[in-house]
């Protein structure tokens, strides 16, 4: 076969080809094909985007799991510092009511654990909104009890609410469900967008490969016709285009996947440094990173199938 003057990838492609097509490599002059570099770049970029989309989806999934499992059995009991009529209660009164509720919670089988928040903890909670330079004497502060239930069933919550109100009519139970549902809905929307991006990547890849193969078939029409006339079955000719697409896609997707994983890891690493963020620590575990090996294989499968199908369809128009 003709000596190859193209750079690094040509040698790799030729070696891989000899493995799959035998010692002869291609019967068609793909190695002088400039479209190959376009395909390589396209698959690399698509794989890069797919990695980011998948990494985002996996992380969002992990975050929602963590939020859901972390908060679904937790409630907060708030003893308000003012009555429904707007009358301000004294700190002592609030503290007394809080202690009464805590006493009621003690020994209750539905309660797994509870913790009455002290002034320091409450101050830390509200400081993002009203700052740290304030005294509890200036602003009426509620009493807060963080409670973990054995199981947050509607019945348990109803019973607990009645008991709490009977002890302190100004108390209120916050189940976190409302805002958690909002966040989960938002996260699901993001996951949907990531899936959409992945689908766009797949469709774009298929369209580009199909179009590339058709133009390559037009360029090599004479050579394809010779193979056809000297007795090459359609699958023999299709295999040439198919393996070319598979091998170029394999190289492109390995490059794109590696770059995507590197960027995703960097982003996760940087976001993990922000300790004040609402978002918990995020990242990909080794199992998830290993799962990304599927991506190059998937890219090869898509490329090979698309190329084969396109060639067979074009050849079917020949006599």
């Amino acid at each position: 076969m003709q000596a190859d003057s193209d750079p690094v990838t040509s040698g790799m492609i030729r070696r891989l080809l000899r493995l799959v097509l035998g010692s002869k490599g291609y019967d068609l002059p793909f190695k002088s094909d400039t479209d190959r570099n376009f395909l390589l770049l396209l698959v690399a970029l698509m794989s890069f985007l797919a990695v980011l989309a998948c990494a985002g989806t996996l992380t969002l999934h992990a975050m929602t799991q963590r939020w859901s499992s972390g908060l679904e059995n937790k409630i907060t009991i708030e003893v308000k510092a003012e009555t429904p009529n707007g009358e301000i209660l004294s700190p002592e009164s609030v503290k007394l009511d809080t202690e009464k509720i805590a006493g009621m919670l003690e020994g209750n089988l539905a309660i797994k654990s509870y913790q009455v928040m002290n002034e320091v903890e409450i101050k830390k909670l509200v400081s993002p909104w009203i700052g740290e330079d304030f005294s509890f004497d200036e602003i009426p502060m509620p009493g807060l009890i963080a409670v973990e239930l054995s199981a947050a069933t509607p019945e348990t919550l109803e019973t607990l609410t009645q008991k709490v109100l009977s002890v302190a009519p100004s108390a209120r139970i916050e189940t976190h469900r409302e805002w958690l549902q909002d966040i989960l809905r938002f996260v699901k929307t993001l996951q949907g967008l990531a899936f959409l991006v992945a689908m766009i990547v797949v469709v774009t890849t298929i369209t580009a490969i199909s179009s590339g193969v058709r133009s390559r078939m037009a360029i090599y029409r004479n050579q394809v016709e010779i193979l056809h006339l000297i007795g090459a079955p359609d699958p023999y000719i299709a295999r040439q285009f198919q393996w070319h697409a598979v091998i170029v896609s394999l190289l492109g997707s390995v490059i794109g996947t590696a770059a995507g994983l590197a960027v995703a890891t960097l982003i996760f690493h940087l976001s993990g440094k922000d300790e004040t963020a609402l978002i918990p620590e995020i990242g990909l575990n080794y199992g998830q990173i290993a799962a990304f090996i599927i991506l190059p294989l998937l890219a090869c499968l898509i490329s090979g199938t698309t190329a084969r199908f396109t060639v067979l369809r074009t050849l079917s128009q020949m006599p």
Binding site: M1, Q2, K24, D27, P29, S32, N222, Q223, I226, L229
Partner: peptide, 10 residues
Amino acid sequence: RLLGHLSAFD
């Protein structure tokens, strides 16, 4: 109608 990129042998 030979394939110009292949050697005489191929």
